[in-house]
Design a protein around this nucleic acid. Structure first.
Length: 284
DNA sequence: AGCTACTCCTGGTAGC
DNA sequence: TGCTACCAGGAGTAGC
């Protein structure tokens, strides 16, 4: 599912096709994708605007809009489970799952495709309301070992749901949390305030490493959903140590990868490499 | 504070 | 083969 590395890949690949382009109009085939804005209002907010800059914050793709060189709001796109962005020729017929289309100058179009309709393609006047709720970017300097040590101190929460909480740390999802915890040798049910400094250091490093490696491979594509805007799959799924590998051998110790449920999420662990805390149960 | 449950959705698949 | 039931899950929200 699109997490930070996939969203980063999408932003990088659509950027050169979008920055500097004028939006001529919009077609909305699934209004709820707009996140509550009336389609007519949406169109009047984007028509005649230029896409000045395309960037990423957490799992959001942000497009800054301008009119006559002055800032006039933003597109805020969240792919959730199955959202995709494509830049296509204006003449291309909409597929069955197309939800929003922006007509661009130069007979091009930006298309938002989303099978399960969880994604959002919103116009917002102000980014702060939404982005200020997010924790630090894991690949930025704000996310330092010292920050993580302080953030975990006194936290009684269980590690996995804490790392999935976007207001704690922004950008991780189910896959990369499982991978980072495995690489850190930490069980997902460990309580945050039980980690020794060395374990915090390791967790910090592995979160960064797994994200950086996944970006390098243009994200993970293990089903038909996530594709780059060029239609190519990413290749990080081949590097998975635990995610989706239940029943198979741990690449590190040869033990069997188990699947548990933690915080209502499928959770993949090697119980030899990730010692369960006392009282941990729920092995499926 | 921090947990669970529920909601939004639909394609794929397990089970019969 | 053809049907149904269930599963995947990011994030917001409600309720305890």
């Amino acid at each position: 599912m699109p997490e930070l590395p996939e969203v980063e890949t999408v932003a990088r690949l659509v950027r050169p096709h979008l920055e500097g382009r004028l939006v001529r109009g919009a077609e909305v085939s699934w209004p709820r994708s707009l996140g509550g804005t009336d389609p007519e209002d949406f169109e009047s907010e984007v028509r005649g605007r230029r896409i000045a800059r395309v960037w990423r914050r957490a799992k959001y793709i942000v497009m800054d809009l301008e009119r006559r060189g002055r800032a006039t709001g933003h597109l805020l796109i969240h792919l959730r489970m199955t959202g995709r962005l494509h830049v296509v020729d204006a003449g291309e017929e909409p597929g069955p799952y197309e939800r929003v289309r922006l007509d661009l100058e130069g007979r091009r179009a930006l298309v938002f495709v989303d099978v399960r309709k969880f994604g959002r393609f919103q116009h917002v006047a102000e980014l702060e309301t939404i982005l200020s709720r997010l924790g630090p970017e894991p690949l930025s300097e704000d996310f330092s070992p010292a920050w993580l040590r302080a953030a975990l101190r006194g936290r009684r929460r269980v590690l996995k749901p804490l790392l999935l909480d976007q207001s704690f740390l922004a950008g991780l999802g189910n896959i990369y949390v499982d991978e980072a915890l495995f690489r850190s040798g930490l069980h997902p049910l460990r309580r945050a305030d039980t980690l020794r400094p060395a374990a915090v250091e390791r967790l910090h490093g592995e979160i960064r490493a797994v994200l950086a490696e996944a970006i390098e491979r243009e994200g993970s594509s293990f089903d038909t959903f996530y594709r780059t805007p060029e239609g190519q799959p990413g290749s990080y799924q081949h590097q998975f140590q635990v995610y989706g590998r239940q029943g198979r051998e741990c690449r590190r110790c040869g033990g069997r990868i188990r699947k548990l449920v933690v915080a209502q999420r499928g959770t993949h662990v090697c119980l030899r490499c990730q010692r369960p805390p006392r009282g941990a149960t729920a092995v499926v």
